[in-house]
Computed example of a mutant assay.
Amino acid sequence: MNTPDIRGQKSEIRNRQSGLAWLWLAALVLVLDQMTKLAVIQTMALHDAIPVTDFFNLVRAHNTGAAFSLLADQPGWQRIFFLAIGLVASGVILHLLRKTRGRPLFCLALALILGGAVGNVIDRLAYGHVVDFLDFHLGDWHWPAFNVADSGITVGAVLLVWQSLRKQP
């Protein structure tokens, strides 16, 4: 009697599924990002800081630039520029996810980046800036404040690099 190879069937199903099955993770990152930003907006004034530990504060900061406040001192053109980049990147990621099959680490990375990109696009559309609130520091030296969306983008980018170095699906 022949018994079906369950592992083979699972592998075949996984290979047939497009990466769009990972959109749940992008949605989770997006929802967590927007919920935490809304909580910060509703409970803190701009530049407020709440010490949590000796190395971490909750803050309310507005970033009109990109990562690390890059171009934040510009007169306003960067808002449209970063909106366009976020929208184009989201479209490219959706296309890649639709075409990707059987590469879970790649899809995981893209989903994290997508959720973060959309979260920051929503901020730029709604407020004209991105709301940041996580502030890690060592004494008086502070890492630039960031948010859940930025974390998703960063972890996703690191996973993409790691996956490319491994040369495996």
Rank of each mutant, 00 (worst) to 15 (best):
D123K: 03
L30H: 01
L30N: 02
G91H: 08
V52T: 11
W77I: 08
M44P: 07
Q78R: 06
R14G: 06
W24N: 05
R60M: 14
K99N: 13
V158W: 08
C107T: 01
Q78A: 07
C107A: 06
H142Q: 11
L58R: 08
N147F: 04
Q9N: 13
I41K: 10
D5S: 05
Y127S: 08
T64L: 07
M1C: 12
L30E: 00
L70M: 15
D5M: 05
S90V: 07
V118L: 03
S164W: 14
D5H: 05
V52H: 12
V121P: 02
V29S: 01
F136Y: 03
V148M: 10
V148F: 08
P169Q: 12
Q9I: 15
A89H: 02
I85Q: 04
A61P: 03
Q74F: 10
L94F: 03
A109G: 05
A111E: 01
A67R: 03
Q42I: 10
M44L: 14
W143F: 09
S90Q: 09
V59S: 04
P75T: 12
G156I: 01
W141F: 11
G119W: 00
L32N: 06
K10N: 14
Q42W: 12
F68Q: 10
Q74L: 14
T53H: 02
V59T: 11
K37P: 01
A49F: 05
R103M: 04
R7V: 11
Q42E: 13
D123S: 04
S164H: 15
N120C: 07
V130C: 02
A109E: 00
A61R: 03
L108G: 02
F68D: 09
N57D: 13
T36K: 08
K99V: 10
R103F: 02
P4C: 14
T36L: 07
W77V: 10
L159E: 06
D54N: 15
K99C: 11
T154L: 11
L125W: 04
R14S: 10
R124Y: 04
G102N: 03
V148K: 07
K167D: 15
D132F: 06
G19E: 02
F133P: 01
A26W: 00
P104K: 00
I85Y: 10
